[in-house]
């Protein structure tokens, strides 16, 4: 049986405000799914809620990893069970070197049963692997000595996320706008990198506005989310169409979801 990540009729609120209104989606390991939608549709929320961000409350529905609910699992347990989120805006952790951070992360993810205080993976082995992965991603070795995301450019942050994806080799990865803030060449490089590090072996959920990120990771499925619901699912051609023509056709066909989406974005625009 292949490994699956199932999202079943998921309703999610933040501070009492509904964001997701019944999302259902199944990803099998080895599949690539594109998730597209206008601002405020709930794309990023879906990524964060899959990882168990404390700000979001699941009011109904379920998330199953290989048939087991993970709703009660803490974010770190989910990470050790094989989930990964590449953040749209990764936070900086000043003073913590990328290499030290990754060695700890890789140790925990590879030995989910590791107790705190037990040895980390051997330094030599880790360094070799990190060096190889960085070479593959054409990253400057100095990168490993820098503090996690501290003072990184937009492009460096996204590359750092891909490096972590490469080292942690999750079963399922959600890439939240790994192309945002990058120029066309950088997006192409990111797309290529995701493919090279074995993205195809994972179950990928690629949240994007950009068809370039999909260039080397062609999705078998494209989902359109609007107003907190998936309103349409298609193949690669749907992603191409949305990229070309925008969301007007979807809006016209799903006026209720479009209206819901607009009420979701408005308060954010005011507070932004």
């Amino acid at each position: 049986m292949s490994e699956t990540l199932e999202i079943i009729d998921l309703f999610v609120e933040v501070e009492g405000k509904p964001i997701l209104r019944g999302v259902t989606l199944t990803i099998r390991r080895g599949e690539t799914h594109a998730l597209m939608g206008p601002n405020g549709s709930g794309k990023s929320t879906l990524g964060l809620v899959l990882m168990g961000h404390p700000k979001y409350t699941v009011t109904s529905g379920d998330i199953l990893l290989n048939g087991q609910s993970i709703l009660e699992a803490s974010p770190d347990e989910r990470a050790r069970a094989g989930l990964f989120l590449a953040f749209q805006r990764p936070v900086a952790i000043p003073g913590v070197k990328m290499a030290d951070f990754l060695r700890h992360a890789a140790t925990n993810v590879r030995n989910p049963e590791r107790k705190e205080g037990e040895d980390l993976m051997p330094m030599k082995e880790f360094r070799q692997e990190l060096r190889a992965k960085m070479a593959q991603l054409k990253m400057d070795p100095d990168f490993a000595r820098r503090y996690v995301n501290d003072g990184f450019s937009g492009g460096e942050m996204k590359r750092a996320e891909i490096l972590q994806l490469a080292m942690l080799q999750p079963k399922f990865a959600i890439l939240d706008e790994t192309d945002s803030g990058l120029d066309a060449d950088a997006v192409r490089l990111a797309s290529q990198s995701i493919a090279e590090i074995g993205g195809a072996k994972m179950g990928l959920l690629i949240i994007t506005h950009h068809d370039k990120l999909l260039e080397h990771n062609p999705p078998q499925y494209t989902h359109v989310i609007m107003g907190g619901r998936i309103v349409e699912t298609g193949g690669r051609e749907l992603a191409d169409e949305l990229h070309r023509n925008g969301y007007q056709r979807i809006r016209d066909e799903h006026p209720e979801a479009a209206a819901m989406n607009d009420t979701n974005t408005k308060p954010e625009a005011v507070t932004a």
Partner: peptide, 17 residues
Amino acid sequence: FYCLNRGFTRQEAIRAI
């Protein structure tokens, strides 16, 4: 949350920070 997302326990995360 970022650290947890990469497999750190909460205490390990705070210790690292």
